[in-house]
Design a protein around this nucleic acid. Structure first.
Length: 273
DNA sequence: CACTTGACCTGTCCGC
DNA sequence: TGCGGACAGGTCAAGT
Protein backbone atom coordinates (compact mmCIF):
# COMPACT_ATOMS: atom_id res chain seq x y z
CA UNK A 1 0.00 0.00 0.00
CA UNK A 2 1.14 3.50 -0.78
CA UNK A 3 2.72 5.17 2.24
CA UNK A 4 2.27 8.94 2.34
CA UNK A 5 3.81 10.87 5.22
CA UNK A 6 1.19 12.68 7.30
CA UNK A 7 3.27 13.90 10.22
CA UNK A 8 6.73 13.70 11.69
CA UNK A 9 7.93 14.27 15.20
CA UNK A 10 11.29 13.92 16.83
CA UNK A 11 12.35 14.72 20.35
CA UNK A 12 16.00 14.72 19.62
CA UNK A 13 17.82 17.24 17.39
CA UNK A 14 20.80 14.98 16.82
CA UNK A 15 18.47 12.47 15.20
CA UNK A 16 18.62 14.45 11.99
CA UNK A 17 22.23 15.57 11.68
CA UNK A 18 23.22 17.38 8.50
CA UNK A 19 19.63 17.47 7.32
CA UNK A 20 17.57 20.43 6.18
CA UNK A 21 16.39 22.37 9.21
CA UNK A 22 12.76 22.12 8.33
CA UNK A 23 12.56 18.35 8.20
CA UNK A 24 8.81 18.27 8.65
CA UNK A 25 7.96 20.43 5.65
CA UNK A 26 10.29 18.34 3.52
CA UNK A 27 8.68 15.08 4.58
CA UNK A 28 4.97 15.75 4.93
CA UNK A 29 3.05 14.72 1.82
CA UNK A 30 5.91 12.71 0.37
CA UNK A 31 5.32 9.12 -0.73
CA UNK A 32 7.66 6.18 -0.17
CA UNK A 33 8.84 4.79 -3.50
CA UNK A 34 11.53 2.31 -2.50
CA UNK A 35 13.27 0.79 0.51
CA UNK A 36 16.77 -0.65 0.34
CA UNK A 37 19.82 -1.65 2.34
CA UNK A 38 23.55 -1.30 1.78
CA UNK A 39 25.95 -2.53 4.46
CA UNK A 40 24.23 -1.63 7.75
CA UNK A 41 22.51 1.41 6.29
CA UNK A 42 18.84 1.57 5.31
CA UNK A 43 17.44 3.93 2.70
CA UNK A 44 13.82 4.98 2.26
CA UNK A 45 13.36 6.81 -1.04
CA UNK A 46 10.61 9.40 -1.37
CA UNK A 47 8.88 10.69 -4.47
CA UNK A 48 10.16 14.18 -3.69
CA UNK A 49 13.67 13.23 -4.71
CA UNK A 50 14.76 12.95 -1.09
CA UNK A 51 15.82 9.88 0.82
CA UNK A 52 15.72 9.00 4.51
CA UNK A 53 19.04 7.34 5.32
CA UNK A 54 19.01 5.37 8.56
CA UNK A 55 21.67 3.71 10.66
CA UNK A 56 20.53 1.73 13.70
CA UNK A 57 24.06 1.34 15.13
CA UNK A 58 23.86 -0.98 18.15
CA UNK A 59 20.59 -0.25 19.90
CA UNK A 60 18.47 1.28 17.16
CA UNK A 61 15.10 -0.13 16.21
CA UNK A 62 12.87 0.62 13.25
CA UNK A 63 9.36 -0.64 13.95
CA UNK A 64 6.26 -0.34 11.78
CA UNK A 65 2.77 -0.53 13.27
CA UNK A 66 -0.63 -0.49 11.63
CA UNK A 67 -3.55 0.82 13.70
CA UNK A 68 -4.89 -2.65 14.46
CA UNK A 69 -1.56 -4.28 15.21
CA UNK A 70 -1.15 -5.75 18.64
CA UNK A 71 2.35 -7.05 18.97
CA UNK A 72 2.75 -6.10 22.62
CA UNK A 73 4.86 -8.09 25.05
CA UNK A 74 1.93 -10.06 26.46
CA UNK A 75 0.51 -10.96 23.07
CA UNK A 76 0.91 -14.47 21.56
CA UNK A 77 2.81 -12.85 18.71
CA UNK A 78 4.63 -10.92 21.39
CA UNK A 79 7.62 -8.87 20.42
CA UNK A 80 10.52 -7.38 22.30
CA UNK A 81 8.92 -4.01 21.71
CA UNK A 82 5.62 -3.27 23.41
CA UNK A 83 3.44 -0.21 23.09
CA UNK A 84 4.95 2.60 21.10
CA UNK A 85 6.11 5.26 21.38
CA UNK A 86 8.22 4.33 24.41
CA UNK A 87 10.98 6.19 26.21
CA UNK A 88 13.57 5.26 23.57
CA UNK A 89 11.48 6.57 20.66
CA UNK A 90 13.41 9.33 18.88
CA UNK A 91 11.45 9.79 15.68
CA UNK A 92 7.82 9.04 14.82
CA UNK A 93 6.58 9.14 11.23
CA UNK A 94 2.84 8.78 10.73
CA UNK A 95 1.40 7.89 7.35
CA UNK A 96 -1.92 8.94 5.83
CA UNK A 97 -3.39 5.44 6.36
CA UNK A 98 -2.72 5.83 10.12
CA UNK A 99 0.17 3.39 10.12
CA UNK A 100 3.31 4.54 11.91
CA UNK A 101 7.04 4.07 11.65
CA UNK A 102 8.99 4.43 14.90
CA UNK A 103 12.70 4.93 15.21
CA UNK A 104 13.81 3.92 18.69
CA UNK A 105 17.34 4.11 19.98
CA UNK A 106 18.27 3.61 23.59
CA UNK A 107 21.83 4.81 23.24
CA UNK A 108 21.31 7.51 20.60
CA UNK A 109 24.21 6.31 18.48
CA UNK A 110 21.94 5.78 15.51
CA UNK A 111 20.72 8.49 13.18
CA UNK A 112 18.34 9.37 10.39
CA UNK A 113 19.40 11.77 7.68
CA UNK A 114 17.21 13.38 5.08
CA UNK A 115 19.23 13.89 1.91
CA UNK A 116 18.61 14.44 -1.79
CA UNK A 117 18.54 10.92 -3.25
CA UNK A 118 21.37 11.76 -5.62
CA UNK A 119 23.56 12.75 -2.68
CA UNK A 120 23.30 9.40 -0.89
CA UNK A 121 25.96 7.54 -2.92
CA UNK A 122 28.24 10.55 -2.45
CA UNK A 123 28.37 10.12 1.30
CA UNK A 124 31.92 9.34 2.34
CA UNK A 125 30.77 6.13 3.96
CA UNK A 126 29.24 4.83 0.73
CA UNK A 127 32.11 5.97 -1.45
CA UNK A 128 34.62 4.00 0.62
CA UNK A 129 32.36 1.04 1.34
CA UNK A 130 33.47 -2.42 0.26
CA UNK A 131 31.30 -4.89 -1.70
CA UNK A 132 28.33 -6.73 -0.30
CA UNK A 133 29.46 -10.23 0.71
CA UNK A 134 26.45 -12.26 -0.41
CA UNK A 135 25.81 -11.59 -4.12
CA UNK A 136 27.13 -14.25 -6.50
CA UNK A 137 29.60 -11.92 -8.13
CA UNK A 138 31.48 -11.62 -4.82
CA UNK A 139 34.08 -14.39 -5.10
CA UNK A 140 36.71 -15.80 -2.80
CA UNK A 141 39.46 -14.28 -4.92
CA UNK A 142 37.86 -10.83 -4.65
CA UNK A 143 37.55 -11.39 -0.90
CA UNK A 144 41.22 -12.40 -0.63
CA UNK A 145 42.44 -9.45 -2.64
CA UNK A 146 40.44 -7.06 -0.48
CA UNK A 147 41.83 -8.59 2.70
CA UNK A 148 45.30 -8.02 1.29
CA UNK A 149 44.66 -4.28 1.41
CA UNK A 150 45.37 -4.55 5.13
CA UNK A 151 48.08 -7.17 5.24
CA UNK A 152 49.58 -5.96 8.51
CA UNK A 153 46.38 -5.87 10.55
CA UNK A 154 44.77 -8.67 12.47
CA UNK A 155 42.00 -10.44 10.61
CA UNK A 156 39.34 -9.52 13.15
CA UNK A 157 39.73 -5.79 12.67
CA UNK A 158 39.90 -6.26 8.89
CA UNK A 159 36.61 -8.16 8.87
CA UNK A 160 35.06 -5.29 10.81
CA UNK A 161 36.46 -2.73 8.36
CA UNK A 162 33.50 -1.69 6.22
CA UNK A 163 35.78 -0.52 3.41
CA UNK A 164 37.04 -4.08 2.97
CA UNK A 165 33.70 -5.93 3.00
CA UNK A 166 30.35 -4.30 3.74
CA UNK A 167 28.13 -5.11 6.66
CA UNK A 168 30.14 -7.49 8.85
CA UNK A 169 29.84 -6.67 12.56
CA UNK A 170 31.30 -8.05 15.75
CA UNK A 171 29.03 -11.08 16.10
CA UNK A 172 29.49 -12.44 12.59
CA UNK A 173 33.22 -11.69 12.59
CA UNK A 174 33.71 -13.93 15.63
CA UNK A 175 31.37 -16.59 14.32
CA UNK A 176 32.96 -16.84 10.89
CA UNK A 177 36.50 -16.90 12.32
CA UNK A 178 35.47 -19.82 14.51
CA UNK A 179 33.99 -21.56 11.46
CA UNK A 180 37.25 -21.12 9.55
CA UNK A 181 39.41 -22.06 12.57
CA UNK A 182 41.31 -18.78 12.42
CA UNK A 183 42.60 -16.98 15.50
CA UNK A 184 41.22 -13.41 15.57
CA UNK A 185 44.72 -12.02 16.15
CA UNK A 186 46.17 -13.61 13.02
CA UNK A 187 47.78 -11.06 10.75
CA UNK A 188 46.33 -11.07 7.25
CA UNK A 189 49.81 -11.60 5.80
CA UNK A 190 50.04 -14.88 7.73
CA UNK A 191 46.78 -16.25 6.36
CA UNK A 192 47.18 -18.96 3.74
CA UNK A 193 45.08 -18.92 0.58
CA UNK A 194 43.11 -21.99 1.73
CA UNK A 195 42.38 -20.26 5.06
CA UNK A 196 41.11 -17.18 3.23
CA UNK A 197 38.91 -19.36 1.03
CA UNK A 198 37.61 -21.09 4.09
CA UNK A 199 36.88 -17.77 5.77
CA UNK A 200 35.04 -16.62 2.67
CA UNK A 201 32.83 -19.72 2.81
CA UNK A 202 32.24 -19.47 6.54
CA UNK A 203 31.44 -15.75 6.44
CA UNK A 204 28.77 -16.29 3.83
CA UNK A 205 27.42 -19.32 5.66
CA UNK A 206 27.13 -17.38 8.93
CA UNK A 207 25.50 -14.35 7.30
CA UNK A 208 22.99 -16.49 5.43
CA UNK A 209 22.15 -18.43 8.58
CA UNK A 210 21.72 -15.19 10.51
CA UNK A 211 19.34 -13.85 7.87
CA UNK A 212 17.37 -17.10 8.00
CA UNK A 213 17.12 -16.77 11.80
CA UNK A 214 15.99 -13.17 11.65
CA UNK A 215 19.26 -11.67 12.86
CA UNK A 216 20.85 -11.53 16.29
CA UNK A 217 19.04 -10.02 19.23
CA UNK A 218 22.00 -9.63 21.53
CA UNK A 219 20.23 -6.83 23.35
CA UNK A 220 17.96 -4.49 21.42
CA UNK A 221 17.74 -5.58 17.82
CA UNK A 222 14.25 -6.23 16.45
CA UNK A 223 12.85 -6.51 12.95
CA UNK A 224 10.28 -4.18 11.43
CA UNK A 225 7.51 -5.98 13.40
CA UNK A 226 9.36 -5.45 16.68
CA UNK A 227 10.33 -9.11 16.91
CA UNK A 228 13.67 -10.43 18.01
CA UNK A 229 16.00 -12.52 15.86
CA UNK A 230 17.15 -15.93 17.04
CA UNK A 231 20.68 -16.26 15.65
CA UNK A 232 22.12 -15.99 19.17
CA UNK A 233 20.56 -19.40 19.87
CA UNK A 234 22.77 -20.79 17.11
CA UNK A 235 25.94 -18.85 17.92
CA UNK A 236 28.95 -21.09 18.44
CA UNK A 237 31.34 -18.71 20.21
CA UNK A 238 29.80 -15.26 20.49
CA UNK A 239 28.90 -14.54 24.11
CA UNK A 240 29.67 -18.17 24.99
CA UNK A 241 32.84 -17.62 27.01
CA UNK A 242 33.28 -20.29 29.66
CA UNK A 243 31.17 -22.78 27.68
CA UNK A 244 32.42 -25.71 25.62
CA UNK A 245 33.47 -25.27 22.01
CA UNK A 246 30.87 -27.19 19.97
CA UNK A 247 33.67 -28.71 17.88
CA UNK A 248 36.29 -29.79 20.43
CA UNK A 249 34.78 -29.07 23.89
CA UNK A 250 37.63 -26.75 24.87
CA UNK A 251 36.45 -23.81 26.98
CA UNK A 252 35.70 -20.76 24.85
CA UNK A 253 37.61 -17.65 25.82
CA UNK A 254 36.82 -13.98 25.59
CA UNK A 255 39.50 -11.39 24.91
CA UNK A 256 39.75 -7.96 23.39
CA UNK A 257 40.84 -7.53 19.78
CA UNK A 258 40.53 -4.32 17.81
CA UNK A 259 38.91 -2.75 20.85
CA UNK A 260 36.00 -5.17 20.77
CA UNK A 261 34.95 -8.15 22.82
CA UNK A 262 36.24 -11.18 20.94
CA UNK A 263 35.27 -14.81 21.46
CA UNK A 264 37.25 -17.79 20.23
CA UNK A 265 38.25 -21.37 20.90
CA UNK A 266 41.91 -21.47 21.99
CA UNK A 267 42.26 -25.01 20.64
CA UNK A 268 40.53 -24.79 17.25
CA UNK A 269 41.72 -21.27 16.54
CA UNK A 270 45.43 -21.32 17.22
CA UNK A 271 47.51 -18.31 16.32
CA UNK A 272 49.63 -18.94 13.21
CA UNK A 273 52.66 -16.73 12.71
C1' DC B 1 50.35 6.65 4.91
C1' DA B 2 48.76 2.51 7.88
C1' DC B 3 46.93 1.44 11.87
C1' DT B 4 44.95 2.01 16.73
C1' DT B 5 42.39 4.28 20.26
C1' DG B 6 38.79 7.20 22.18
C1' DA B 7 34.29 9.45 21.89
C1' DC B 8 29.59 9.16 21.23
C1' DC B 9 25.21 7.44 24.94
C1' DT B 10 22.39 4.83 28.12
C1' DG B 11 21.04 0.66 30.50
C1' DT B 12 22.67 -3.30 32.85
C1' DC B 13 25.46 -5.92 35.65
C1' DC B 14 29.05 -6.62 39.11
C1' DG B 15 31.54 -5.69 43.37
C1' DC B 16 31.84 -3.10 47.60
C1' DT C 1 19.99 -0.81 49.13
C1' DG C 2 23.09 2.55 46.76
C1' DC C 3 26.84 3.82 44.11
C1' DG C 4 30.80 3.73 41.05
C1' DG C 5 32.81 1.63 37.31
C1' DA C 6 33.18 -1.58 33.45
C1' DC C 7 30.99 -2.95 29.52
C1' DA C 8 28.15 -3.48 25.32
C1' DG C 9 28.64 -2.66 19.70
C1' DG C 10 29.34 0.73 14.77
C1' DT C 11 31.55 4.40 13.03
C1' DC C 12 34.33 8.50 12.77
C1' DA C 13 37.74 11.80 14.52
C1' DA C 14 41.92 12.14 16.52
C1' DG C 15 46.07 10.15 17.87
C1' DT C 16 50.52 7.37 17.18
Amino acid sequence: MKKKVASVSFDWPKGFPNSPLDVESFLIGSVVTNVSRRAKVLSIDLDTGYTLVIHLKMTGQLVFRSPNDNFGAGHPNGSLVGDLPDKSTRVTIKFSDNSTLYFNDQRKFGWIRLLPTTEVPKLDFFKKLGPEPLPNDFTSSIFASRLERRRNSNIKSVLLDQTVVAGVGNIYADESLWGAKINPNTLVRNLSKPKMNNLFTQLRYVLNLAIEKGGSTNSNYVNIDGKRGSYMDFARVFRREGLACPRCQTTIQKTRVAGRGTHFCPNCQRLVK
